[in-house]
Computed example of a mutant assay.
Amino acid sequence: MLVIIVFFLCHWFFSLFFHSFFLHRYASHQMYTVSRGWERTIYLCTWIAQGSSYLVPRAYAVMHRMHHTYSDTEKDPHSPHFFKDVIHMTLHTARIFRGFVTGKDLPEAQFTKEYLPAWNRLDNFGNKAVIRVLFGAAYVTIYILFAPNAWWFLLLPIHFLMGPIQGALVNWCGHKYGYRNYDNGDHSKNSSPFGIVMMGELFQNNHHHAKNNANFARKWFEFDLTYSIMRVLHAVKIIKLKPLAVSV
């Protein structure tokens, strides 16, 4: 049982960290600079951490930039205020995401002006159905070997869809439930005063107020774990945090 608990927690937090640290704060917002070698290393770690639910960075970044520009309007790719439940919202988001990944749909030029990290060989490989299935098979194997009973297998769908599930939680809860520190002209909210479980990502109201601020926490009782890790990486010169573009 302990192996399963540790595996689940490691998968959850590593997937979420690289989602927040690389896909969100770097690919989408360019909150820090990083050398080419470290970018590739972080890129690879993102793929491994997300595994079967790997989100292609360039498509994620374009879609997230759209979200900020059109927050909680009909053109927002994932506002919860236009869908009856989180599943319909997520399916809508997935269709937009696939269109950007395949090139079937082209984003507006304003969303591609800033740097978009791309590693075409890894993206093409990691996005293959067979690779996603192999990751899923690895998760199942761990449960077969270490799960004390069949009930634990109910956690497997979360492993299979880890990235989209984490994104859906942030997009749904972060624009429906919680408190507001700022009036941003949208429905963004801070869904948790601590944000540990989502590593700072549920401070959506704070983030929408100052999207270039790498620290999503504002009040004394708010804590952004991803930002704390980023400060360590900055201190050891793996990344270089950019000065804040806005005052808060």
Score class of each variant (00 low, 15 high):
82 F>C: 06
144 I>H: 09
107 P>W: 05
99 G>F: 05
152 W>G: 01
98 R>I: 13
92 H>N: 14
84 K>C: 12
210 A>W: 06
26 Y>M: 10
209 H>D: 06
105 D>H: 11
159 H>W: 05
212 N>K: 13
176 K>G: 03
105 D>L: 05
66 M>E: 07
220 W>S: 07
98 R>N: 11
90 T>K: 11
106 L>S: 14
195 G>H: 04
56 V>E: 08
83 F>Q: 10
13 F>H: 05
155 L>F: 09
39 E>Y: 07
143 Y>L: 04
75 K>Y: 08
83 F>V: 02
129 A>C: 13
186 D>A: 05
126 G>P: 08
62 V>C: 13
34 V>I: 13
106 L>W: 15
169 L>D: 02
133 V>D: 14
10 C>W: 14
152 W>A: 01
220 W>G: 08
62 V>P: 01
51 G>D: 10
205 N>S: 01
138 A>P: 14
75 K>M: 05
7 F>Y: 11
34 V>D: 03
100 F>G: 02
206 N>A: 00
225 L>P: 03
228 S>F: 12
151 W>M: 06
179 Y>D: 09
61 A>F: 12
68 H>Q: 08
160 F>S: 02
51 G>M: 08
21 F>P: 04
236 V>Q: 03
76 D>I: 00
174 G>Q: 00
235 A>N: 06
215 N>R: 04
201 E>R: 00
97 F>H: 08
125 F>V: 06
72 D>V: 04
200 G>V: 01
132 R>C: 12
91 L>V: 13
91 L>M: 15
113 K>D: 15
226 T>I: 01
35 S>L: 03
247 S>A: 14
218 R>S: 04
145 L>S: 07
49 A>E: 02
105 D>K: 10
215 N>P: 00
90 T>W: 08
171 N>M: 02
228 S>G: 09
168 A>I: 12
219 K>G: 04
100 F>P: 08
90 T>D: 12
160 F>L: 05
102 T>F: 09
143 Y>Q: 08
236 V>A: 00
237 K>E: 06
151 W>R: 05
18 F>D: 02
76 D>W: 00
57 P>D: 13
119 W>C: 12
55 L>R: 08
242 K>Q: 15
147 A>D: 00
101 V>S: 05
157 P>Y: 04
238 I>S: 07
77 P>W: 03
42 I>K: 02
216 F>Q: 00
215 N>C: 01
190 N>C: 11
126 G>K: 04
211 K>H: 10
66 M>P: 04
195 G>M: 00
225 L>T: 03
93 T>E: 11
211 K>D: 05
247 S>Y: 14
190 N>G: 02
87 I>D: 11
167 G>F: 04
170 V>A: 01
179 Y>G: 06
153 F>C: 00
93 T>G: 07
238 I>W: 04
171 N>H: 07
31 M>S: 12
86 V>N: 10
212 N>C: 07
21 F>Y: 10
246 V>P: 14
28 S>E: 06
225 L>S: 06
106 L>I: 14
169 L>V: 08
95 R>A: 12
171 N>W: 03
113 K>N: 15
161 L>I: 05
14 F>V: 11
58 R>D: 15
6 V>C: 05
138 A>I: 15
202 L>C: 03
218 R>N: 10
112 T>F: 14
56 V>Q: 10
181 N>G: 01
